[in-house]
Design a protein around this nucleic acid. Structure first.
Lengths: 109, 109
DNA sequence: CGGAATCCGCACGGATACTG
DNA sequence: CAGTATCCGTGCGGATTCCG
């Protein structure tokens, strides 16, 4: 923790980072895209059981607005839209691994 | 990411780790306790602007139940209760730092 | 001092129907 | 195919009151 941080500002910064992961679907979406995978809307819909069209579109837009996901539209008929992680989105993977390691520590002590 | 992980199980494990941090107050509480600080209930109440007694007690209990916080009751009159992080709770600090570093990366690219 | 109990508003997310 | 629009239920968190 650097200098100049109060508990409130530090907590707010972490909360801002966690905000882009909040909700029931975003982590699932990210894990479907980690590793450079490219997926179509309908592909994600099929692979993620229980997600509604509204939530799929809404959460993908949120991830895109936050800079984790890139959306590519192909002007074809029928329309095709592909989703993939940005470099920054992909950089989240090791951070989440750190979180998993921390979680496993608990059982080992 | 190890083998045997589906996007769903990996996301569920991360979500379980994030669950102990969820809500409006837990991060603030943690940052008030990082570094081995020991705080009384009334002290936390004073230091955290806007938190209600209900939320303070509720979130402290949740953190205690999740093993991040240790609660010590001194049988005195008037009663005194102190809160501090467990080793595992303290171990979360570098993980959150990783999250902050990830966040700062965005502006630098 | 350190809570517990209760009531309540609001935003998140689900279901369904419709569209370029 | 890839969405948008609308309605609605549930649960988180706030305000207030009471208790050992």
């Amino acid at each position: 923790m650097g200098k100049g941080y109060t508990p409130e500002t530090a907590a707010a910064d972490v909360a801002a980072a966690l905000k882009v992961l909040e909700g029931r679907w975003k982590l699932i979406l990210l894990f479907h895209l980690f590793g450079g995978q490219v997926r179509r809307y309908s592909e994600l819909k099929k692979r993620i059981p229980g997600i509604s069209q509204k939530m799929l579109a809404q959460q993908l837009r949120a991830l895109e607005a936050d800079g984790l996901v890139r959306r590519t539209v192909y002007p074809e008929v029928p329309p095709r839209v592909e989703y993939q992680l940005t470099d920054w989105g992909q950089a989240l993977c090791p951070v989440l691994d750190g979180l998993l390691s921390w979680r496993e520590k608990r059982h080992s002590q």
